[in-house]
Design a binder for these strands. Structure first.
Lengths: 248, 248
DNA sequence: TATGATTTGTACGTATGTATC
DNA sequence: AGATACATACGTACAAATCAT
């Protein structure tokens, strides 16, 4: 019987969370990979069931366990896929060992006047038309991200149609006469997942998303794509390629 | 008096969280930038105080509000500092507009045999001695990150001593005859903050951290620094510099 | 400086709803 | 259908932090 100390300056739920975390790493629950029920844990630590629930809620936040209503509390351990980001990353190309087959599912597309932040990023006149694509993306058959991308509506008016035909962004750009393009900027931040991302990526409430804001440009330096991507943080890590050539 | 609907298939706390979020964006609490007390909110929505607390806990997770015991619940909105990461980023150099004066505080340092993952990253023999530095870092007088860095213990045995003397990493490397170094790899992931990071960066429980795992090398391609950094995700965003020169 | 009022945090108990097996 | 397990919601009491007086 484990014990917890009252009036120690550390709340019971935190002491219990700590002890459960240690018990997990000691392999105590390796058999069926799940915790005992809340009532059993409450008895084990001699506290109320709700105190155990507070501890489990905390461990859920940390990503240590995952709770399923009616089934139980499961120990969570998943390797993160390595998702490459670089000046010349091409997803259609084979990538050295990192991440497997990718797929994009087109959720929605529109042709509309650009919001201010989009026209700025694409260096277009305010309110110029832009094509907007919303996709949900998988890698190794796992949902990993959703993205919203914008393209110059004058230059790429039927971008969405070609999407179905060509499949890859690289191929579509080629069809417009753009043989090459490069990533010129990427901004990365982390947030709690919003409701759209929770749904699209089938995440649990409280999940974390990695957000990237990126601009790609053609070889004249003219922006051709602006995008916001939201990755399931517990499924991937971003692997930044800083280039291999030495430069002065 | 706002109302919530029971037995609607949506829990009361979620309905309340949604209504509070909307009220915030409507500017309803702009006066003192904080929510009414829990009891007042409970009366407003005709529910128990704990139901309100569940709603507020959810909003805290989203980063919409921040709770301070004995004071109240405050509306959270802070601009993220833009933190540059690139092949040749130098923190002692002036950086274009992005982020202000930086400072590192040395928390701890040791000289010890390298753990396996460190010797691998630095391309040293297993168990070779390494200098380990633990720092807490500020930018614009705000706590932004903590870091653990490792250096070859043979090559840089008195690294920690020189730290006090020189202040900047670049200057220390120069003192060892390394005039230049570059970032060769960066891996970025997001997690819930662990207890050490919570404490070092004075974060609230449930906060998110951005983790970077980085290797710097000298101009011969020999690794000179391996580091793990943990950033307060609500205070910064990482701005990846992909370089400006065009390369084949 | 001290004290009381206010506000959030912890912990208990109880009842009922919902999902799974 | 029944048993089990987690989810929601109510209530009560007291602790801890903050703030005004």
């Amino acid at each position: 019987m484990d014990n917890v100390e009252r009036r120690s300056g550390i709340s019971l739920w935190r002491q219990i969370a700590d002890q459960i975390r240690i018990a997990i790493s000691n392999g105590e629950f390796d058999g069926n990979n799940m915790l005992p029920g809340e009532i059993a844990l409450a008895k084990r630590f001699s506290v109320n069931r709700h105190t155990v629930r507070s501890a489990i809620a905390s461990l859920t936040q940390e990503g240590v366990v995952r709770v399923e209503q009616g089934r139980g509390t499961f120990i969570e351990r998943r390797e993160r896929l390595q998702y490459p980001i670089g000046r010349r990353t091409r997803f259609s190309e084979g990538l050295a060992g990192k991440i497997g087959p990718r797929d994009r599912h087109l959720k929605n597309h529109t042709l509309q006047p650009a919001p201010a932040f989009v026209s700025t990023a694409l260096q277009l006149a305010p309110g110029a038309p832009v094509v907007q694509l919303e996709t949900v993306n998988t890698a190794d058959d796992q949902l990993v991200s959703r993205a919203i991308s914008w393209f110059d509506g004058e230059r790429f008016s039927d971008f969405a149609d070609r999407y179905v035909e060509y499949g890859s962004i690289t191929a579509i750009f080629k069809s417009y006469g753009i043989d090459d393009y490069i990533r010129v900027s990427t901004r990365i931040s982390a947030h709690h997942a919003d409701s759209t991302t929770l749904e699209d990526l089938q995440l649990s409430p409280g999940a974390i998303m990695l957000r990237t804001e990126a601009i790609n440009a053609d070889m004249n330096g003219r922006p051709v794509e602006y995008s916001h991507s939201y990755f399931a943080a517990d499924r991937i890590e971003l692997d930044i390629d800083h280039g291999t050539a030495l430069r002065a």
